[in-house]
Write a protein that binds this DNA or RNA. Structure first.
Lengths: 138, 138
DNA sequence: AGTTTGTTTTGAGTAGTTCAAAACAAACGG
DNA sequence: CCGTTTGTTTTGAACTACTCAAAACAAACT
């Protein structure tokens, strides 16, 4: 599966992929923590390199929530979107809003060739909504 | 106009707003450069502070393109989207894809209260498309 | 003009990420 | 199975964009 993307199969790479399957929407640091458990000799920089290689090969998708470190996930190919809690930074996947590839075509592309659309919904998750309203009461 | 938002009117703030009107989609550093031209005593930190204050007051909108510094623009209120060139990082505004507030409601909100949707189209601008195909020929 | 309150300067510090060179290991050929 | 090549990982350092805190300062109200 890694090999199918034209990349060499190494222990750290397998570990990164497995960690990412277990914990989607993980930051580079969290992936590193997960990898360390099974391969203690791995360096953080290796994880950065591996994630960059995987992203370039289309094996993982990178997602940059504003104000937080970049997140990575294996779910790739479908153009799904993300729901981000502005309070606790939790991320949830959401399927396309309308049909297959919804926002993939802007109304006026201004001469651009559009490859992908990144849609991020900002909101409050259930937990944080109740927590926030409790704060307001005080 | 600044005063209407409950903020004190100061020279640096006026300069930031004017710079942002002249050069939309500017990074904090570029705003700082523009402000320096008329107010040389202004510090970069002041610009960061002012932009944060304006963003909080809803006077300017902040936009975080992946891999680039944050950009700021005055156009606010309408939920317009952005077209980003993945090669030269140029940004163009695009109006909503469908109707008024298009992607503002995800198909399944997973218990979130959604406030806003950030839509970013990744692509190649006209210039970079020709430049890229020329590179490929070599 | 004086006081208050919020703003800006000054200076330092941080997180997240990237770069470069050397050590190393997977994959292929013999 | 061993050597060579090529790509990967380690090690170490650096960098960008941004944030924090305290003191100096200026706008706004009286």
């Amino acid at each position: 599966m890694i090999r199918a993307s034209g990349l060499k199969v190494t222990a750290p790479r397998v570990a990164v992929l497995r960690t990412l399957q277990q914990l989607p929407h993980s930051s580079a640091e969290r992936v590193f923590d997960g990898v360390k458990d099974e391969l203690s000799s791995t360096s953080p920089q290796a994880v950065y390199g591996i994630l960059a290689a995987f992203t370039g090969a289309g094996l993982v998708r990178r997602f940059d929530p504003p104000g937080s470190p970049a997140l990575f996930e294996c779910r790739v190919g479908d153009n799904h979107h993300h729901l981000v809690c502005i309070r606790c930074a939790t991320v949830r996947d959401v399927d396309c809003v309308i049909g297959e590839a919804p926002c993939l075509q802007p109304s006026d592309d201004a001469g651009f060739t559009v490859f992908a659309a990144e849609v991020t919904f900002n909101g409050l998750c259930g937990q944080c909504r109740t927590a926030a309203s409790t704060d307001d009461d005080s």
